[in-house]
């Protein structure tokens, strides 16, 4: 703890705790949200494409009327 006398001083940030932690908290929350959304999208796409492949036939040649359900 080179800069701070105690943990409470660290969290207080010289009275600016709300602004500093509000900034960092929201930033990392948004980043976490983005990561969750990206991973979710991947899972969802794979699932949808697997379903689609079953619908058009395993070899993917069932061209007639094969459409993606979005």
């Amino acid at each position: 703890m080179m800069q701070w006398e105690s943990w409470s001083a660290f969290w207080d940030m010289g009275g600016a705790g709300f602004f500093v932690w509000g900034s960092y908290g929201v930033t990392f929350a948004v980043i976490a949200l983005e990561l969750v959304l990206v991973l979710q999208r991947r899972k969802e796409t794979v699932k949808r494409l697997l379903r689609w492949r079953r619908a058009v036939g395993k070899d993917g040649s069932g061209r007639a009327g094969a459409r993606m359900e979005s």
Binding site: M1, Q3, W4, M13, A16, F19, V20, S23
Partner: peptide, 24 residues
């Protein structure tokens, strides 16, 4: 950002927001 960089003489600790604000 939090343990090495010193307190800013005029702004106090609030300036530590700069470490994410500017890169973003």
């Amino acid at each position: 950002a939090f343990f090495v960089a010193p307190v800013d003489a005029t702004q106090g600790n609030v300036y530590r927001v700069i470490f994410i604000h500017v890169p973003a």
